[in-house]
Amino acid sequence: MTGAIIVQANPLLETVDLAVQCRTASGKLDLLQGIHLRLEAGRVLGIVGESGSGKSLTCHAILGLLHRTQMQRSGQVRLQGQELTNYSERQMRRVRGAQIGTILQNPMNAFMPLHTIGTQFVQTLRTHDGTLSRRQALRIAVEGLDNMGLPHPQRLLRQYPFQLSGGMLQRIMIALSMCLKPKLLIADEPTTALDLVSQLQVLRALDRLRRECGTAILLVSHDLGVIAQMADDVAVMRHGRIVEQGSVHQLFDDPQHEYTRLLLDSRMTAYHPLEQEQEQEQEQEQEQGGRRDA
C-alpha cells in the first residue's frame, strides 16, 4: 500500500456531523448526534462506551442499515471521498462486503444455519466478482481459510455453522472478509461472545488483516483491554455522542472527560506484573505435556 506514505487529502472513512433520529409516537428522539470520525487507511479506530451508548448504531448508520421508516439519518459519510449518503440501496450493496467488511458480535447469526460454510463462502465471493467460477471461488476459499491458520479447510467448508464453535465461526468470517480485501472492516464487538482464548485468536486474525492487507478497522468494544491491544485512536461514546476522541496513549494516560476516567477506573486491576507475564509466555511455549499441579 503506497497510500500509507502519502498524506491523503481524503481519509479512508470520514463522517461529518452524522446523526440519527428515531420517529416515535411521542415525537422525534435523537439517538446519535454530531458524530465526527476520521479513519486513515491501515489504522484501527476504537469506539468504546457502555451498552446503549450508540456504538452499534454508529456502525449501522455508516453501513446504511437503519430501519427505513423509523430511523432518519443526517450528516455525511464519506468513503475515500465518495459520499455514501447519496448512494442508492443498489449501490450500497456493492459497497458492503467488497469495500466495507462487517463482523458482528454473534457469529451464529451471521451465517445461514441451513447452508454449509462452503456454500455461503462461494456465494459471497461470486456475488462480488461475477467472473469467478464455482471452482475458482472454492479454491480461494480454501486458500483463505488456510491462510488464517484454520485447520482442515476442506472439511470446514463442508460443515454447517452449528457444528462449529463461536471462535471458529468468527475467524471464518474474518477469513471471508480477507478474501474480499475490503478497505475498511467494521468489527462490532467481535470478541464479546467468546472466551478469553478464542478472543486472543480472533484479535490476532484482525491484526493480520490490517498488517497484510492494509485494511482499516473500526473496532467497537466495551472492553478496554481489546482497545488497549488493538486501537491507534479511540472515540469514547456516551448517550449517542462522542465525549472524547484521541490517540490511544493520550486517552489512557491523560483522560480529559470524567466519563473516560470512570471507564478506566472500572478495569479490574487484580494482578498484572508485566515482566512476569512475558516470562510465563516464553515458558508456556517451551512447556509440553500436562503436569498436574499439587
Binding site: 478472543q199 486472543l200 488497549a228 507475564e277 508456556q284
Partner: peptide, 14 residues
C-alpha cells in the same frame, strides 16, 4: 498458562 497468556493489556504500552 494459556488462560493467563490470553489476558489483554491494561495499557497500550503493554
Amino acid at each position: 498458562q494459556q488462560l493467563i497468556a490470553a489476558r489483554l493489556p491494561e495499557h497500550p504500552s503493554q
